[in-house]
Simulated assay, not measured.
Amino acid sequence: MRFDIITLFPELFEPFLKAGVTRRAFETRQVDVRLWNPRDVAEGNYRRVDDRPFGGGPGMVMLAEPLEKCLQAIRADRGEGAPVVLFSPIGQALNHTAVQAWSDSEGAVLLCGRYEGVDQRFIDRYVTHQISLGDFVLSGGEIAAMALLDAVARLQPGVLNDEGSHQLDSFNPALDGLLDSPHYTRPEVWQGEPVPEALMSGHHARIERWRREQSLTLTAKHRPELLAQARADGKLSPADELFLKKL
Rank of each mutant, 00 (worst) to 15 (best):
A64W: 06
R52E: 15
C70I: 08
Q72M: 12
R78A: 15
D77G: 10
P66H: 07
L63W: 07
P66M: 04
Y46H: 15
P83N: 04
P66N: 10
L71Y: 00
G81W: 03
M62Q: 08
Q72H: 09
R75L: 09
G44L: 10
G57K: 02
D40W: 13
G56Q: 10
R47D: 10
A64C: 12
P66V: 09
R48A: 15
D51F: 13
A82N: 01
C70N: 01
A76M: 09
L67T: 01
A64V: 06
G79Q: 07
E80T: 12
G59D: 12
P53A: 03
C70L: 05
L86N: 02
I74S: 00
P83Y: 04
R78P: 00
R47E: 09
R78W: 09
A76T: 11
D77W: 04
R52C: 06
R75S: 03
V49K: 01
P83V: 14
F54L: 04
A82F: 08
A73N: 05
R47V: 05
V41A: 09
R48W: 08
D40E: 14
V84G: 00
N45V: 09
G56N: 09
R75Y: 05
P53Y: 04
E43S: 15
A42V: 11
E68F: 03
M60V: 03
